[in-house]
């Protein structure tokens, strides 16, 4: 399949980007790693594609005592390689290194991944587990949204047509933080069938878990301390989120939790 005809706009700055996004049928593109195939398959038929990866405002990284703000167009590879500072004591680079293939990581962007809102992608779940926030630029300036609230559902970001993801705020982990990330893919580089991130950071009063590869947005358990004592406590949130619709799915998501927690040193990893 070849893409249908569309116009490419390369805006000078953020204002021009937002103006272009206001046009009928406009869509932003940064790394093109998801949009490109969708265009070729004609699953996405934008009239205008606004290419934003070159904008310096979206490429910057700033560090604060609370964490790091990544420009939306920072690539997975830059995070993997440590080219951007990491407030998470290795958690972010490790997640980045596991995304698809290096060729995808070289171009794919952290903001693009969140705006695409694929439930089986790594960033929406990993960043939700970390308690990260998205910065969204709209007509009234920048708003700040928790990553887990940034998707209405699968492929449905909480983003108005003329809004643009401009940055991602990752929190600074304290020295005592424990992080575990585990996902299951049929083959290296494929989308995951189950994934879980677990963060316990006692100094900041955090004990979170997030589950991806769901049918909708990631499932976040804001207080996972009970599940960490007894994984059976996951039954209720799983049922509420529809993660237990068959015995296979239930097993996989439970395994994801146990193994992520084990990698964080929070549970013994003994498969049943």
């Amino acid at each position: 399949m070849k893409a249908a005809a569309f116009e490419i706009v390369r805006p000078r700055d953020l204002d021009a980007a937002r103006a272009a996004l206001g046009r009928e049928g406009a869509k932003a593109a940064a790394g093109w790693q998801s949009l490109g195939p969708m265009l070729n398959l004609r699953l996405a038929r934008p009239a205008v594609v606004v290419s934003i990866a070159h904008l310096p405002e979206l490429r910057g990284v700033s560090e604060t005592p609370e964490g790091v703000v990544y420009g939306a167009c920072v690539t997975h590879a830059e995070i993997e390689d440590g080219a951007a500072p990491d407030p998470t004591r290795g958690a972010l680079p490790a997640v980045a290194a596991g995304i698809a293939y290096r060729a995808v990581r070289n171009r794919g962007t952290i903001g693009g991944s969140l705006a695409h809102a694929d439930p089986a992608a790594d960033w929406p779940t990993a960043l939700a587990a970390m308690g990260a926030h998205v910065r969204v630029l709209g007509a009234d300036g920048v708003r700040r949204v928790a990553v887990e609230d940034f998707a209405h559902g699968a492929f449905a970001p909480a983003l108005a047509p003329d809004e643009l993801v401009v940055g991602v705020e990752a929190p600074r982990f304290s020295a005592s933080a424990r992080w575990g990330w585990w996902k299951f893919c049929r083959k290296l580089g494929e989308y995951a069938e189950a994934m879980c991130g677990v963060l316990v950071d006692p100094d900041r009063g955090v004990a979170r878990a997030a589950f991806g590869a769901t049918d909708g947005r990631p499932l976040v358990i804001a207080d996972a301390s009970e599940a960490l004592r007894d994984p059976d406590a996951l039954a209720a949130p799983f049922a509420a989120a529809g993660l237990d619709h068959d015995p296979v799915a239930r097993r996989l998501h439970r395994a994801a939790f146990r193994r992520a927690a084990a990698r964080a040193g929070l549970l013994e990893d003994v498969p049943t």
Partner: peptide
């Protein structure tokens, strides 16, 4: 020779 993961089916 295979190793089968009983939790994931991998």
């Amino acid at each position: 020779v295979v190793a089968v993961d009983g939790e994931t089916g991998g």
